[in-house]
């Protein structure tokens, strides 16, 4: 379908404060925390750059190139002619803020990490919405995105993402020898494209771990 790696950049979107608090481990607002959160949001507003690089594979070609043995992924991509592999990052500055405040205010450091988590999730959502719209024009429907590290999709697969997507050059995303990404607020994932429309259950709704502290209500 498409040849080569493409890059998309996104403008800043509004912060979802409820989500941030959820990532920070708060089920509800609390006054002192809200004030600190506003302060943190103000400080990091310009710290983000939203970049995604992606590449479209025929699904069988994807399995070959990524040497992906995962059964869970097979199930996820079942019936998909194409697979979009993407890497997304919100940049290094938020890591710098997290590190800076580790020494000054560990609360703020913690809030910055929660903000970073919300930012990268919202970037992935925005990208996947674009993919959905584009696919629809061609009569395809996306499956829920599936990340490295989910189920039996091993972290070691990261090296194929980095080789196939040229992440360092395209979006400044790098991989350590132990397969961790830097900047840390980054995601690699695949989205299957199928001609068959299926109910889209995503996120917490598909997860079997029902006692998770982060679970959405």
């Amino acid at each position: 379908m498409l040849n080569g790696v493409f890059v998309k950049t996104y403008p800043s979107s509004p912060f979802d404060r409820q989500e941030i608090l959820r990532y920070a481990g708060c089920k509800n607002d609390f006054a002192a925390g809200t004030a600190l959160l506003e302060d943190a949001l103000c400080e990091c507003e310009k710290a983000f750059s939203y970049r995604v690089c992606y590449r479209v594979f025929e699904t069988e070609d994807f399995f070959k190139r990524f040497q992906a043995q995962s059964k869970a992924l097979r199930k996820n991509l079942d019936g998909c002619d194409y697979t979009v592999a993407f890497a997304a990052t919100v940049g290094l500055d938020i890591d710098r803020l997290i590190a800076k405040y580790a020494n000054v205010s560990v609360t703020k450091s913690w809030l910055f990490q929660a903000i970073g988590a919300e930012r990268i999730e919202s970037l992935c959502d925005a990208f996947c919405a674009d993919i959905k719209a584009q696919a629809k024009e061609k009569g395809y429907y996306p499956r829920p995105r599936f990340s490295v590290g989910y189920g039996d999709f091993p972290l070691e697969t990261q090296k194929y993402f980095f080789a196939e997507l040229d992440c360092a050059r395209k979006i400044g995303l790098t991989l350590t020898d132990s397969f961790l990404m830097s900047p840390t607020k980054s995601v690699t994932a695949v989205v299957g494209l199928s001609k068959i429309e299926k109910e889209e259950k995503t996120g917490c709704a598909v997860c079997e771990k029902t006692d998770c502290a982060m679970r959405r209500k």
């Binding site: 481990g25 609390f30 002192a32 913690w110």
Partner: peptide, 11 residues
């Protein structure tokens, strides 16, 4: 208490 509250007290 939430984690951020614990952290604020710690600070």
């Amino acid at each position: 208490a939430y984690l951020p509250q614990l952290l604020m007290s710690a600070e």
